[in-house]
Each structure stands twice: as structure tokens, then as C-alpha cells.
């Protein structure tokens, strides 16, 4: 006992304690649920076996069944469209805004802060607001598009299978743009100003400076924001619940919403877990990209 105490005091044991505490926390709060979820995806789970851990092992049956279902591939495709569309929109608009505020006109940093409003709002509230904006009969978006002559008839954003997924993407872009902008602004301000002066004297015009200095110097920021964007869009749930509920007819359903629907609406916990495991693989991939891109920071 005394040896342990003195080892904690002289440092080495203390290091182990420091490592053990967060590791224990992570294992309890994240590791166990993940493992439990993965195990469930290989078991047969129903309402009666829900309370026990020793359930019949069925191998890959849940996976086979899942991919035999007709809606699986369309929903995976929806997820892809949602992720790519949301990230592209958030990143491009966020980068544009970050470059805009980088000009540093009077009040720029103040205004930039105000953009965070979208980020502090709960997803369900954002969903409610966008429900009104996207409303087919009296929505402001339809009004604007109609009055500017882009469309002739009203678009029923939330109930038209052609548009329902895009309705959620639009709302999600609005939600995530501010976060992209703030992170990219930080990246931009970390680029030393004399690099631009040197490039200017070297004969580079504004366009060339952007492509040869700004973008390469932003590589780690961009990698990080896209990886985080992938994680955030894959966990975007509130907007689907608030705007389309995955409908109509799964036209706006995505894996994260579907997993919840299967588990907690249809009580098919095994399938819900199976989808979650598939998503975990993707998120892990994004995490690796994120960690690698923040590690490879280029700083003079």
C-alpha cells in the first residue's frame, strides 16, 4: 500500500492514474455501449430477450436480412447524398464567409460572431423554423423563388419525394455553415501575413495567391472541418425528426434516422444495431482522417 502511495507521489504511478481515469471513463460511457451495440448486431433480439445479454447468436443473418430489404440501398444512397450535399454546402458557404470576414472591415469580427446564432439553436427549433420557411403553401422560400421567377408553381418541399431530402439538406447547411466558417477563419488567421507579401513581390496575383498560399496552408484546417462535418452530418437526427420524419415513403430517410426508427418504433433492435455498426465504420474512417490532418499541420 505504501509502495503504491509513494509511486503516486514520485510521479510514475501518478502518470498511470492520469491515463487510467479518462480511459475508464471512455470505456464505461463510450466503449461498453459500442461493444454492446456491435454484439447485438450478431444476435437475434426481440422484446422478450431484450432484458438479457445471452441471446441466440445468428452470425451475419441480420446483415443479410438488412441488405435484402428493398429500402436499404435507397436509404444508404440518401445518406450519401445528404452527407455530400450538406458538407459541400456548409464548407463552400462557410469558406466563402470566412474569406469575406478575413478582409477585416470595421465590425468584421463582431458580425462573424453573430453568425454563430445558427449553431447555438437546438436542432428541433431549427427544424421548426425551417418547417415554416419550407412550407408548400405559405413558405417564404417558395415565395422568394416564385417572385424571382425561378419556379412557376409551389414546391411542396417536405411532402414531395423529389424534394424532401433536399429540404433537410438546406436546413442542415444553414445549421452547419457557421461552425465551418469559424473553424476556417481560425485557420486563415493563422497564416502569417508576410507570406502574402512575399508572394505578392514574387509576382503572384490574388488568384494565384489563393491557390498557392491560402489553400495549401489551410490543408489541415480543411481536412479537419470536412472530417468533423462527416461526423456531424452522420449524427444529424433532429432535423429529420422535425422536418420530414424520413418520409414520404423513406424518400428522405437516412441511416441514422432509420436506425432509430427500426429500434424504437418497430422494436427491431438487432437491425437498428446492425445499421449503427455500419455507420460506426464510416465515422471511424472520418476520425482517422481528422486525427491525421490535425497532426500534419504545416507551420513555419
Amino acid at each position: 500500500m505504501r509502495r503504491i502511495l509513494s509511486s503516486i507521489r514520485d510521479g510514475h504511478g501518478f502518470d498511470i492514474l492520469l491515463v487510467a481515469f479518462p480511459l475508464g471513463f471512455l470505456f464505461l460511457m463510450a466503449g461498453l455501449p459500442l461493444i454492446y451495440n456491435a454484439v447485438m448486431s450478431f444476435q437475434e433480439v426481440d422484446m422478450f430477450s431484450l432484458g438479457t445479454f445471452s441471446r441466440p447468436f445468428v452470425g451475419l443473418k441480420n446483415y443479410r436480412d438488412l441488405f435484402a430489404q428493398p429500402e436499404t440501398w435507397p436509404i444508404l444512397y440518401n445518406t450519401l447524398v445528404f452527407v455530400v450535399g450538406s458538407i459541400a454546402g456548409q464548407f463552400l458557404i462557410g469558406f466563402g464567409l470566412a474569406l469575406f470576414f478575413w478582409v477585416n472591415f470595421p465590425g468584421a469580427s463582431w458580425l462573424r460572431g453573430l453568425f454563430l446564432v445558427s449553431w447555438v439553436m437546438p436542432g428541433l427549433v431549427v427544424g421548426a423554423v425551417w418547417n415554416w420557411i419550407l412550407s408548400g403553401d405559405f413558405g417564404v422560400l417558395n415565395f422568394l423563388l416564385r417572385e424571382s421567377g425561378i419556379i412557376s408553381g409551389n414546391i411542396f418541399w417536405r411532402s414531395d419525394p423529389q424534394y424532401s431530402l433536399y429540404a433537410v439538406i438546406i436546413a442542415n447547411i444553414w445549421l452547419g455553415t457557421a461552425f465551418n466558417m469559424i473553424l476556417l477563419s481560425v485557420g486563415l488567421s493563422a497564416i502569417p501575413g508576410d507570406l502574402y507579401e512575399a508572394a505578392e513581390l514574387d509576382g503572384a496575383n490574388a488568384w494565384q495567391r489563393f491557390w498557392t498560399i491560402t489553400l495549401p496552408m489551410m490543408r489541415s484546417s480543411i481536412g479537419a472541418i470536412i472530417a468533423l462535418g462527416l461526423i456531424f452530418t452522420l449524427q444529424q437526427f433532429d432535423l429529420f425528426a422535425a422536418i420530414t420524419s424520413g418520409g414520404p415513403n423513406n424518400s428522405s430517410n437516412v441511416t441514422q434516422y432509420w436506425a432509430w426508427e427500426l429500434s424504437f418504433r418497430q422494436y427491431d433492435f438487432a437491425k437498428g444495431a446492425t445499421i449503427s455498426v455500419i455507420m460506426i465504420v464510416f465515422v471511424m474512417f472520418a476520425s482517422v482522417v481528422y486525427v491525421r490532418s490535425t497532426r500534419h499541420e504545416v507551420r513555419g
Partner: peptide, 21 residues
């Protein structure tokens, strides 16, 4: 005349080397 058309070269105190090149 903008700097890039003056045809002068400058050596900066910080060197201002492009770190990613």
C-alpha cells in the same frame, strides 16, 4: 504600381519562406 509589377525582390526579417513548399 502593385508590388508584383515593380520587379523588386525583398528579403524579410522573418524570411517569409513558404512553409508548405
Amino acid at each position: 504600381v502593385p508590388p508584383r509589377k515593380r520587379d523588386v525582390a525583398m528579403v524579410f526579417q522573418s524570411y517569409a519562406l513558404y512553409p508548405h513548399m
